[in-house]
């Protein structure tokens, strides 16, 4: 009996589903052994922000900057750094 296309297709889908489950398993395995170095460094230095956006000081330390920070250059000087458009303004008042 030759291979039916439906066998092939369903097999392919099953393979994809297995891949999806594998991503789940991978996430589970990695969550078991998180790297302890970074939290230790954060504790030691009292860091508050990831160094994702180093282009301006209010994007480098999002948590520490206040609402006026993006407009420091001069009054009405609009924020012009690209990464500022990616993140929400800090929400603390």
């Amino acid at each position: 009996m030759s291979l039916r296309p439906s066998t092939l297709a369903l097999g392919g889908l099953a393979l994809g589903l297995a891949g999806l489950l594998a991503t789940w398993a991978e996430a589970g395995l990695q969550a078991q052994a998180p790297d302890p170095g970074t939290p230790a460094l954060v504790r030691e230095l009292g860091l508050t922000d990831p160094a994702l956006f180093t282009e301006a000081r209010y994007t480098r330390h999002l948590a520490l900057s206040d609402r006026h920070a993006p407009f420091q250059d001069h009054p009405l000087g609009f924020d012009h750094f690209p990464s500022a458009s990616l993140v929400a303004p800090p929400r603390h008042d």
């Binding site: 991978e26 996430a27 956006f53 282009e55 990464s83 990616l86």
Partner: peptide, 18 residues
């Protein structure tokens, strides 16, 4: 996109999350 005009950009590997 994330780097914007910044020169320094961290090389990091995210822990898989689903």
């Amino acid at each position: 996109v994330l780097q914007g005009w910044a020169v320094l950009y961290p090389h990091f590997r995210l822990t898989p999350q689903v």
